[in-house]
């Protein structure tokens, strides 16, 4: 699903964020991306959702070498990825409904049952009373749920979430991770960055540990709670 080969990354003339990193994530896997604060978790995810090109090395996604994929074929690849950005990146001038519906709009789907699906999802994440609200009236926790709903609404085959529990209290963080685990069960490959390792150890998933420019892929292990 995702393959890094000899990937190095640095921003401009800054320090190297990744140093000759190679690893592979299987389709249908679930990984917690963990590490101390600021080692490059977001940067690693950015490489995965094609917001960055590596300084050196190759990134493969869905079995395609991205350095050799023509530009016009990238949008279709991107539409198969659901992204929860660390800073949400919601469109403030749209309603909650329209924000969540955006990926379906980009996929060229038309109204009808799709609309009900969006409404259901918004209800499910507990924002039913905010369907037609604009973004600025929402709290950070509520925006986090909108960002999550938008990332999963189009049933992506790859879900990349950057600190999705960062703005949620522990109960909701647990509930969110359970939701991702459910999606993983039906085939979605998940990479979830978190600095909350006490949350991560409650699930039987492998870790992707990043530290000082190196990435180590851990083993899947038995969880304490599931």
């Amino acid at each position: 699903m995702i393959r890094f080969q000899g990937v190095s990354l640095r921003y401009g003339n800054g320090p190297q964020v990744l140093r000759d990193v190679s690893f592979e994530l299987e389709p249908g896997s679930f990984h917690f991306l963990v590490g101390p604060s600021g080692p490059g978790k977001s940067s690693l995810l950015r490489l995965m959702y094609l917001a960055l090109r590596p300084t050196r090395g190759t990134v493969e996604l869905f079995g395609r070498d991205l350095t050799e994929t023509p530009r016009r074929e990238l949008p279709a690849l991107r539409r198969r990825i659901g992204i929860v950005f660390q800073d949400f990146r919601l469109l403030d001038h749209l309603t909650v409904f329209d924000n969540v519906a955006l990926p379906l709009c980009l996929a060229g789907l038309r109204a009808g049952s799709v609309c009900e699906h969006v409404g259901e999802l918004i209800n499910w994440v507990g924002l039913g009373h905010h369907v037609e609200s604009r973004l600025p009236v929402l709290s950070d926790g509520e925006k986090q749920w909108v960002a999550i709903a938008r990332a999963i609404v189009a049933r992506p085959s790859l879900l990349l979430a950057d600190e999705p529990t960062g703005n949620l209290d522990p109960d909701l963080g647990l509930r969110l991770t359970q939701l991702f685990a459910e999606l993983n069960k039906i085939g979605t490959t998940v990479v979830m960055a978190t600095h909350n390792e006490t949350l991560a150890v409650r699930f039987p998933f492998a870790t992707l540990r990043i530290n000082e420019g190196q990435v180590a892929v851990g083993q899947r292990r038995a969880g304490r709670l599931q």
Binding site: L91, H93, L94, D98, A101, L102, C105, A111, G112, C115
Partner: peptide, 15 residues
């Protein structure tokens, strides 16, 4: 919540 067509005012930011 039915809409005839998806056309979000994506460029319609007030800025």
């Amino acid at each position: 919540m039915r809409r005839s067509e998806w056309s979000l005012p994506l460029g319609g930011d007030a800025t």
